[in-house]
């Protein structure tokens, strides 16, 4: 793997590192808010990926001049991924806010937002249900 290859794909390396950081936070953290933060990092990496692939070498921002005298020599970057990512950002915001709203409700009902404690309470509820209703296989999974 030459240096040129590594530098030439810099945006992909960054995308992968950021994506894995986000993913790792989602998987490893027990705090529900931290999970949402991880999810945000994960999504942000995808936004960066889309924006970086739309770059054209030597290209400028894809905005036509006001008088619409388009100079054919000027190279523009591809605007489409930008537009797509605007939509994806909105979706990300909606997901985050819904996630946080759910966390508020979870905190009201359980009194905690730590996954470990909640799992414990849920499996206790499951166990008492099993005792009352007859045992069953499979808990929260």
């Amino acid at each position: 793997m030459s240096m040129e290859f590594i530098l030439g794909h810099l945006n992909y390396w960054l995308f992968i590192v950021l994506m894995m950081i986000g993913f790792y936070i989602v998987v490893s953290r027990g705090n529900y808010i931290k999970k949402i933060v991880g999810l945000n990092v994960f999504q942000a990496s995808v936004f960066m990926f889309y924006i970086s692939i739309s770059n054209v070498t030597g290209g400028t921002a894809p905005i036509f001049p006001v008088d619409m005298n388009i100079d054919p020599d000027v190279i523009y970057s591809n605007p489409l991924p930008h537009v797509l990512i605007l939509t994806a950002i909105v979706v990300g915001v909606a997901t985050t806010s819904l996630g946080l709203a759910l966390i508020v409700r979870i905190r009201e009902e359980y009194g905690t937002i730590e996954e470990e404690d909640i799992l414990e309470m849920d499996s206790a509820a499951q166990a008492s249900e099993n005792l009352k209703e007859g045992s069953s296989m499979g808990g929260r999974a």
Partner: peptide
Amino acid sequence: DRRALTSAYDYLILGTIGAT
């Protein structure tokens, strides 16, 4: 059942990862 909240949350995390 309050467990609806945690299952919705779990689904939110998994579903968002899937969609991403």
